[in-house]
Write a protein that binds this DNA or RNA. Structure first.
Length: 362
DNA sequence: ATAGAGATGCTTGCGAGATT
DNA sequence: AATCTCGCAAGCATCTCTAT
């Protein structure tokens, strides 16, 4: 999917989301590139946010600039961005950790929603079941349409997903066009979290489920054996600690969960290994596919790469075949990390800012 | 310049089914 | 049982194009 956020914001403000027409030589038809870019961006944004958070469609549409809060880790003083979710089904708010990827998406969304003053416009959203307009809020999922800033509706989101999938031409096992609903991303998120070793009672809190059986019910994509094995495991565990799976996580468990995000920092960047798993290679991080290299450590990586080249040449000269093999793996790893840094556009730090209120125009 | 036709995109209402 | 999601379709708003 094309990432529209990488286009110059100056360019888009110049044309004010206006229409840019081009003739498509393949079809002979005129294409509204402004509209296509706008739609590509929002489809990307919707997919990325749903994928990274597992929130419900209604929760997505209610995300506002006020939803972004920060938490200072007591141990290191590091600020961790959090997303405050106002649930649609229960009345208990919950907080989600914002990963670096999600922060990128959110900053792109905020950049686009902001007007010249830097404020995210206040827009009203329509509540379909209550058949009522909500109070104006700096909603993240809004766009300028018909010369007015308006909130997205759930039907708009669904249509965007449908069209994006149609464009991919993907089909299911019966050759029928593949369809994803917003809720499917929630299933994927929860399944993925559990498969990556996050304890079900933590997933339950993140997903905002009141009953853990609901969390465990998101098992549609598990192979049958995995379900059985997991249920058997839970049954065994419950027989030993009957109430264990039904409780609210303790402060210590939350600290352990938050601490994962401190510990995943390693000397050359951040380690992307799943929650609760140990480092698989005794911290030989330069070889590890889980390492997200830190651009600030580029010089060190170059130094290590050059050193490995020298040592490989030496091993070759002296005929140390065993050592050479290991050195070559590390060298390939270091070069891969450097390529990764080259490929990645330097991340522009975006100030997510504090919501600014203004009088709504409507 | 303007009115009308046609195309397109979005909102809204509603019912069925899924989720909590 | 209550609440929410999903899909459909009618209707509305806006835009382009063409004729006047």
């Amino acid at each position: 999917m094309e990432r529209g956020s990488e286009l110059s914001s100056t360019f888009w403000s110049t044309v004010e989301r206006g229409r840019i027409w081009a003739d498509d030589p393949n079809t002979g038809k005129r294409r509204d590139l402004g509209l296509e870019e706008e739609r590509a961006f929002w489809t990307w944004a919707v997919v990325e946010v749903l994928r990274a958070t597992g929130i419900r469609i209604e929760e997505l549409l209610e995300l506002s600039h006020h939803s972004l809060v920060q938490y200072r880790l007591p141990t290191t003083g590091e600020l961790v961005p959090l997303l405050q979710i106002v649930p649609s089904k229960t009345d208990t708010e919950r907080l989600l950790l914002v990963s670096p990827e999600l922060a990128d998406v959110l900053s792109a969304i905020i950049c686009r929603a902001r007007e010249a003053t830097g404020a995210v416009p206040l827009v009203r959203s329509y509540h379909r079941r209550e058949c009522a307009w909500q109070e104006p809020a700096p909603l993240l999922f809004q766009r300028r349409i018909r010369n007015e800033d308006g909130a997205f509706t759930d039907e708009t989101v669904r249509t965007m997903l449908d069209e994006a999938l149609t464009d991919t031409g993907l089909t299911d096992v019966t050759e029928a066009p593949l369809r994803y609903t917003p809720h499917d991303f929630r299933r994927l998120f929860i399944t993925d979290a559990i498969l990556n070793g996050l304890p079900p009672h933590i997933v339950q809190v993140i997903a905002g489920h009141q009953d853990i059986n609901v969390t465990l019910g998101y098992k549609a994509v598990y192979p049958e054996e995995a379900i059985q094995a997991h249920l058997a495991f839970l049954a065994r565990r419950r027989s030993l600690r009957p109430s264990e799976e039904y409780r609210v996580p303790t402060d210590e468990e939350w600290q352990e969960f938050l601490g994962h995000f401190e510990r995943h920092k390693v000397s050359f960047g951040a380690c992307g290994r799943p929650f609760g798993t140990p480092c698989i290679h005794e911290h030989a991080c330069v070889r590890c596919p889980m390492l997200w290299p830190d651009p600030a450590q580029r010089d060190r990586l170059v130094e290590i790469r050059d050193n490995l080249v020298t040592r490989t040449a030496e091993a070759e000269r002296e005929g140390w075949l065993g050592e050479m093999e290991g050195l070559q793996v590390s060298l390939a790893g270091a070069e891969e990390k450097l390529t990764q840094l080259e490929r990645r556009p330097s991340r522009v730090v975006v100030d997510l800012g504090i919501p600014v209120s203004r009088t709504p125009s409507s």
